[in-house]
Nucleic acid binder design. Structure first.
Lengths: 218, 218
DNA sequence: GCGCATTGAGCAAAATGCGCACAACCAACC
DNA sequence: GGTTGGTTGTGCGCATTTTGCTCAATGCGC
């Protein structure tokens, strides 16, 4: 078992930093360092702790997060509420492997970390690569669902989302319409909800457990 | 009609630089600056001519191409014969949007330039973006057509498509009819589906993985 | 003889459905 | 207000089936 990937979160907001640190820790194959809140502390942490990945906000109280990741020779993800093209482009030019707009569902960061882990394996520093493997690594990093969603899974998900266009539905109902079992529909709907593609509400008022109602997020 | 994208090619080999310059010039929406052969000349060209994109070799006689693209705030592609993971990773960290291993077919650079043009449109500096558009732009840049999918069908593919004219079928079934192994038929059918020549649906209702059903797209 | 592309065998993993334990609610009762 | 029983729905472990992938074998062209 290889060493876990160590990640440094850099965010001026203490809570946000802690939240992201927790997400990282919860991911298989990852360990989170204590978050830091500014460029100076981040520089020291990079020097002393040699993280494998830095997850950095654009705006930091003592400097520019983008300039910071440009200066370090460490893989980096940019995280920011900033969503103008100029900032995004600047971050990518500075070497950000990915750019996430805050706030986001925890699952989104998890999936990006999953993709990054696979990417690292594909372009391990000690390997000889060919163009195909470089290209594939980049697709893994930037593809939807953090890599190749299998044909089966994505087909089933598309089917469910399509059926939800007609309006809110329960798992049982939509399973019936899709020709799936209730458990399978439930499983997929829960995953879609976790990723933020679908909303869940609960229907109260009758005996028994409340029914989960799913709808497409608009 | 927007201004053409200006591109600076940086390669110590005069012929290679000229070749790439010609490829760029041949691309719709692009104009190539005169290639330069080293970091110093490249720096001057960036300062004086403000290219939109730099296509740079890793090894330059007067410096490190990767360090050079790290220092400029211009979109860059890395081009090199170097194919070790460490170099590729370093280039990506430095902000290379893409990495091409020399030598390559001219068409490959053309397609990457096409992808870059679309990418630029999607993340135009004056736009407000959301996560989906950032992600989509990155997929456009690193997408499937990175690997040149053969447009022409192999003999095996033609056979499978012919057999599918009879109607929807599973991989196992059609393999039997074609005299191939299931795995081979599956592989070809998956490739055909990826290209859009064939549709995939899933057969639900029994335990185990759902069976892929293939049919010719009309 | 070697490199490359293709095939097939075999295996690990993905995805499904079943069945059941239990969670989450509601209403009746004390 | 708290407890209890009943009802309905969810989530999960497991067996099953299929897919997707790796690797060895083979054939072809140079």
């Amino acid at each position: 078992m290889t060493d876990p990937i160590s990640v440094l979160v850099v965010d001026d907001d203490f809570h946000v930093g802690g939240l992201h640190r927790d997400i990282v820790d919860a991911c298989t194959g990852y360990t989170a360092l204590e978050p830091v809140r500014g460029v100076r502390a981040a520089r020291a942490a990079v020097r002393d702790l040699s993280p494998d990945l830095v997850i950095c906000d654009v705006y930091l109280p003592d400097g520019d997060g983008i300039a910071f990741i440009a200066e370090i020779d460490v893989d980096a993800f940019m995280i920011s509420a900033a969503s103008d093209g100029a900032t995004v482009r600047r971050a990518l030019r500075a070497g950000a492997l990915d750019y996430l707009i805050k706030p986001f569902e925890p699952a989104r960061l998890s999936e990006r970390l999953g993709a990054y882990r696979r990417f690292r394996t594909l372009v391990a520093e000690d390997r000889q690569l060919d163009q195909d493997s470089i290209d594939r690594a980049q697709r893994v990093l930037h593809g939807r669902d953090g890599g190749v969603a299998s044909v089966s899974r994505s087909t089933t998900e598309k089917l469910l989302i399509e059926l939800l266009q007609d309006g809110e539905s329960s798992a049982s109902l939509i399973a019936g319409r899709a020709g799936l079992s209730r458990a399978t529909a439930q499983r997929h709907l829960a995953a879609l909800a976790t990723r933020g593609d679908v909303d869940v509400t609960l229907r109260y008022g009758s005996t028994g457990r409340p029914e989960h109602r799913y709808s497409v997020r608009r």
